[in-house]
Design a protein around this nucleic acid. Sequence first.
RNA 1: GCUCCUAUCGUCUAGAGGCCUAGGACGGAGCCCUCUCAAGGCUUAAACCCCGGUUCGAAUCCGGGUAGGAGCGCCA
Length: 473
Amino acid sequence: MSVVTRFAPSPTGFLHIGGARTALFSYLYAKGHGGKFLLRIEDTDRERSTQEAVDAIFEGMAWLGLNGDNAQPIYQTQRFDRYRQVIQQMLAAGTAYYCYCSKEELDALRAEQMANKQKPRYDGRWRPEAGKTLPTPPADVQPVVRFRSPLDGQVVLQDLIKGEIVFDNAELDDLIIARGDGTPTYNFCVVVDDMDMGITHVIRGDDHVNNTPRQINILKALGATPPAYAHVSMILGADGAKLSKRHGALGVMEYRAMGFMPEAMLNYLVRLGWSHGDQELFTREEMCAKFNFDHVSASPARFDMEKAYWVNHQYLKSADPALVATEFDWHLRRIGVDPAQGPDLPAVIVQQRERCRTLVEMAEKSKFFFAELDGYNEKDAAKHLNAESAALLAELASALEALPQWSAEALHLAVNGFAEGRGLGLGKVAQPIRVACCGMAVSPPIDQTLYLLGRERTLARLKAAVSYVQQKQ
RNA sequence: GCUCCUAUCGUCUAGAGGCCUAGGACGGAGCCCUCUCAAGGCUUAAACCCCGGUUCGAAUCCGGGUAGGAGCGCCA
């Protein structure tokens, strides 16, 4: 049987990091087994579902490159006819029944049970039993439909991550599968969808484990074979607290804004909870080939920004610069820099990637290649731009102006020769050049920097630095 | 309250009874290299939640604690 997995978010917000990892695991498991990865939008809660959220989720998935194999994702709101049909079928088969309890009645029941330190649960007052007389249906109540859950026996779940979990049916009550207005509820929709979509492996957050026995029971009542389940633990914040809107929960697109590469994000996420021996870095192909549930941790994991940065840096350093350029371009524009007004992006990337953990850093540190300097870094200027160095810069400008060829090699020889000729260490010369040309004392190797900056800009900036010093005096 | 889940360095994890004096990675500390910042190389500190049991032998199996977490909706 070929594997079919799905990612089924409810569109009530952006795609957060935990959702992204669940989606990734589902994607990898399907791809690694030659199966299909499907997308489904669980939008039965009309109150909270929004089109903006749907778009945000797709945007995040697209950025990460986690595309579903169904051309059109499935929307639960478009399947109401099907749900209604299954509910009728269950009503007819006696595996579901109408319940006329009002919400007030239910609230009172729950409150009473809590007060008695019992697990709150429906008491089955409208559940048909042999020889039992049901109350007379009140005329003013629109009945809900409840699932007729087995009273005894147990559900044994062989979870791919957590192992065997046993639930007593006696712990479960008769959950509502259709509201008073006839619309179906979550646990029911999930079951029907997973069945209709032919899902073989349900991979989801472990906040769903307690729903699983109910879903399995409904599946059985429908005569369907339950899929395999894998319940993934939560991702916690760096402080070990649960991530929430108020507490550090960020959308994946915010990680883009922070300068992460999508592939690096995936790599960090896949290692959060999953391991393959001592390997830290994986290509997407490796992830697909090696991912499995034997090595997914059952305990929650904290999101460690430092490690994420490190992974990102590894990608920046080893990825094809042409690929990085797409993201780099986005970041440059984002800080108001026109990438066309300077050297080729891949060439800049090759020079900068060793010293930048994020693309935000890279963009900031590369700004001077594309735009005119908006002043010098104060400390760096104070340290490196003075009468002494200005004299050197003036001389150097003439020397460089005379260069027949503007290449990194030629510049290397020229600058080194210049320093040696004056009995100076290279640092004595390179640092003032940096401040003059880059606005700060940090840049790639000086020969590469000047080469990429170009002849005109270099000479102009050297001269500008000289007049800056003169004016200051 | 009830049900369910989890528990190895600060963090992510390796570990499927002897290979563990517990390995790797991030981060930390130190040294080397060096035109800046990095990168890189080397060295180093740092953990099996507790108590019982099974066994010749337990980080690994079992039981009980403890501590975290999730769920108990006409939300998903």
